[in-house]
């Protein structure tokens, strides 16, 4: 790697270089979910990823967050080459520097909302400070649901618990896979403002997948994905510009043979 490149990646919280992901299936037909994707996300920015269903957004996020290993290519997060890390080091890196909000929430059914949120800290051997967990829950509007188990919460509430869990360790990078997919406009806006506020003043890097042009307009930049490839981006998006870009994209996809 050349000195300039190293220099360049230092400013970037997340860098993907020529990342491909092929899902092999047992019955022979393999699916290429990502094709040779190269993308850099500067620290302290808020990026939205958009694209049609099945275009590889979730796969991109999972590879970038070190939750899955790409078939080829390189992923660097917070200055670490994920491919060179052992499974254990990778987990610890994730726990300390990366937050992830899943499309399916992945909460532990046996734990209350409070304990689910505190879990990453406790697994890291830290005892969360008294108000810390409460504050995280309150920031997503669930201060009064701390003692409830996932089965006793609505889908949107579970999603917000998952967001609070991702934020609790104050990670350098937060990946969120459709975090507002199940939320009403008001609570969706609350979550988006929260993410927005973390990117700017607190220098945290946010990557969010969404289908909603309004949600995407909260970001600094929108990256469009089709068929596993980056096919364009927008800086300083507005709901209208995003919607227009999407319509154009769908038209090109539809006109393809």
């Amino acid at each position: 790697m050349s000195p300039q490149e190293t220099q360049a990646t230092e400013e970037h919280a997340v860098t993907l270089h020529a990342v491909s992901k092929v899902y092999g299936s047992k019955r022979g037909a393999s699916v290429t979910a990502l094709r040779d994707v190269t993308i850099s996300l500067p620290a302290g920015t808020f990026t939205a990823i958009m694209g049609p269903s099945g275009s590889g957004k979730s796969t991109l996020l999972q590879c970038a967050a070190g939750l899955d290993r790409p078939t080829s290519g390189q992923v660097r997060v917070a200055g670490h080459d994920l491919g060179s890390l052992s499974e254990k080091k990778l987990t610890i890196l994730r726990r300390d520097h990366i937050g992830f909000v899943f499309q399916s929430f992945n909460l532990l059914p046996s734990l209350t909302a409070e304990l689910n949120v505190a879990l990453p800290l406790r697994l890291a051997g830290r005892r969360p400070a008294r108000g810390e967990v409460r504050a995280a829950l309150e920031s997503v509007g669930l201060g009064d649901r701390a003692k409830h188990r996932p089965a006793e919460l609505s889908g949107g509430q579970q999603q917000r618990v998952a967001i609070a869990r991702a934020l609790i360790s104050n990670p350098q990078v937060i990946f969120a896979d459709e975090p507002t997919g199940m939320l009403d406009t008001a609570s969706g806006r609350q979550v988006l403002s929260l993410l927005r506020s973390m990117a700017g003043p607190r220098r945290q890097t946010i990557v969010m997948v969404t289908h909603d042009p309004v949600a995407a307009s909260y970001a600094d930049r929108v990256v469009f994905l089709t068929d596993g490839q980056v096919c364009g981006e927008l800086h300083g998006p507005t709901p209208q510009s995003v919607a227009a870009h999407m319509t154009g994209l769908e038209a090109t996809v539809a006109s393809q043979p």
Binding site: E87, R94, R95, N106, L119
Partner: peptide, 16 residues
């Protein structure tokens, strides 16, 4: 398996 996955995704190492 789902539960173990959720744990791993919450930051637990395989050892934990």
């Amino acid at each position: 398996k789902q539960e173990f996955a959720a744990l791993r995704l919450s930051g637990a190492t395989a050892g934990q």
